[in-house]
Amino acid sequence: MIDIMLIIALALFGLAVLITLFRVIVGPSLPDRVIALDMIGVILISGIATISILLETKAFLEVILILGILAFISTIAFSKFIERGVFIERKRDL
């Protein structure tokens, strides 16, 4: 019974990734695309967690941590790129 429910959940996660991919391609501005990419990362995390129950293995649990860190750091880097700010702020005393 739990297997059927997990497969349905995986199908819904796949559908969610597809719809978000539509937003990545269409999205009118750059921040739209970055937010959608961040969301794809988060949906992938829940998909991997579901797969690890389905296969009854603990091997994928490190992937969750690493994907979370990568999604966060890429969002921060893209936001700095979009703001066109300075990456490291220095105080110069002239």
Binding site: V34, A49, E62, L65, T75, I82
Partner: peptide, 30 residues
């Protein structure tokens, strides 16, 4: 009792709203 999964939960709970906030700020400033 998997401590890695617990760490992942806490990390996501802290970082996902921060990412959204900082992206909204970048969108407004740009």
């Amino acid at each position: 009792f998997n401590i890695k999964l617990l760490l992942g939960i806490v990390f996501l709970f802290i970082t996902a709203p921060i990412g959204g906030h900082i992206m909204g700020r970048a969108a407004y400033i740009s």
